[in-house]
């Protein structure tokens, strides 16, 4: 069941279509290690518009996950801060998190896993949880346990969980990199479907250039402790990996990405 058919249903359940903006201000992070101080990045300033899909690209070890963890609130920055605002300026911004591994509790069913994070959500009912699972295509699996699902299915539960709290911002840390390519491709399409209909801001970390171009409106490139690349992705949606526009942009992006090695 595609998410387009569910579009009217989600509107009925009173979903919040408010997207949030992200403001990273003078963010820097260093770690105390046994060898001394390690500077991960310094003085990062980025503003992300509400409703946009932004990918943070970087090689392994560039600090992209660290940055996402700080934005998520899991890690404290050494200095600087991260601010969020709703599009209409009202209220707090709720953050939804999707991790590289599903991080589901194996002793709870899928529904219960979703219910777990909805403690503070007054709008949450079991029906809401079930609808989330429907949205990601897991209708028959409400009461199944993570141990009975495949990797791709588990990751989908993770996405459903993140969406269930009605976040204004969705934070995703390489969510598809542990999956096989076919499953990852399916989930990317599903994610784009959900995003286009729900108008949420997505901040997506990855090391995969093709994935980033497929998904994002804007590419940020992290390396050497700074954001050295900031490209708008001009390709029209729906995007095809083999289209001329895609390949052309991809070349440009790769050149920008590799330019860091020339310094």
């Amino acid at each position: 069941m595609s998410s387009r058919e569910l579009q009217s249903t989600s509107r009925e359940s009173g979903k919040n279509n408010n997207a949030g903006s992200i403001h990273i201000e003078q963010l820097s992070k260093e770690f105390d290690t046994a060898e001394g101080y390690e500077l991960v990045f310094d003085n990062i300033n980025v503003d992300i518009e509400p409703g946009s899909f932004v990918c943070l690209l970087g090689k392994s070890g560039s600090g992209k996950s660290t940055m996402l963890n700080i934005v998520s609130g899991i890690l404290e920055p050494t200095s600087g801060r991260v601010r969020f605002e709703t599009a209409d300026g009202t209220g707090d911004v709720t953050l939804g998190h999707v991790f590289q591994s599903p991080r589901l509790m194996p002793w709870d069913s899928n529904l219960k896993n979703i219910e777990f994070v909805n403690e503070n959500n007054p709008n949450y009912t079991t029906e809401v949880g079930k609808k989330q699972l429907d949205l990601v295509g897991l209708t028959e699996h409400y009461h199944k346990y993570p141990g009975q699902l495949s990797g791709g299915q588990r990751q989908r539960v993770g996405i459903a969980r993140a969406l269930s709290i009605d976040p204004e911002v969705l934070l995703m840390d390489e969510p598809f990199s542990n999956l096989d390519e076919i499953t990852a491709e399916e989930l990317r399409e599903q994610l784009l479907d959900l995003w286009s209909e729900m108008n949420k801001t997505v901040f997506f970390v990855t090391h995969d250039m093709t994935e980033a171009i497929q998904l994002a409106d804007r590419l940020l490139m992290l390396g050497d402790g700074e954001i050295y690349g900031d490209l708008e992705v001009p390709i029209e949606r729906p995007r095809r990996i083999d289209s001329d526009a895609f390949l052309k942009f991809r070349q440009k992006a790769i050149d920008t990405f590799n330019s860091i090695d020339e310094d």
Binding site: S72, G73, I74, L95, H97, F99, S101, R103, M105, W107, D108, F116, V117, E119, N120, I165
Partner: peptide
């Protein structure tokens, strides 16, 4: 630990984390 950070990211209350993650994990 991944589960604990997940719970922290989602702002789950300490009591809930103890009851539904820690206790369940040790059971």
């Amino acid at each position: 630990n991944d589960l604990l950070t997940m719970a922290r990211a989602f702002d789950v209350s300490r009591f809930r984390v103890i009851k539904r993650v820690i206790v369940q994990s040790v059971l």
